[in-house]
Amino acid sequence: MTRIRITAATVALGLLPLLVLVVRALRDDLGANPIEEVSHETGQWTLRLLLATLAVTPLRRLSGWSWLAPQRRTLGLLCFAWAVLHVSTWVALDLAFDFGAVVEDVLDRPYITAGFTGFVCLVPLAVTSTRAWMRRLGRRWTRLHRLVYVAAAAGVVHFLWLVKADLLEPGIYAAVLALLLAARLVRR
């Protein structure tokens, strides 16, 4: 029962920024370039939730809080939900379903190549997140889910290559990711 409650709280927290975004949109409060704003917001929340997902295991080991463990999947799925919103914003709002432009962007714009790679990595992880798939894949499940590291690296690179000159903000994400990866290496 408590586990369901904790999961419900995680979902509520993870979707709260979406509520904020919707309210801002309804109040016409997204600034001069609303599509860009939605794109940045959904992208940033994808990255934040991806890092939160990666933080679960080291945090659980450090603190011994076993109740954290099931939240890894919840956070991972929330991250995927934000990623879907982010990609949808790009395809539907920014490019107005011009699939030629989508393909061209993926091939020609390095930051989009990186971001798209990250998204593609997340898809099988979301699909195989159920208990049934865990059982079916057995040990291969763990190996498959190491793709999350590729996705995280690709996401951070996507952000780094997007900014023009000021690397501070993507640099913070890169530093947090490096810390989370280092925590895993130290463990071994």
């Binding site: 001069a32 370039n33 599509i35 107005a96 432009a101 061209e104 962007d105 020609d108 714009r109 390095p110 930051y111 290559w161 997007l162």
Partner: peptide
């Protein structure tokens, strides 16, 4: 002539939805 980050063939006029 495209920029590595922005396709320059289209633009979004601020205040408009489509490009």
């Amino acid at each position: 002539v495209h920029h590595p980050r922005w396709r320059q063939s289209r633009e979004r006029r601020i205040g408009e939805f489509g490009k």
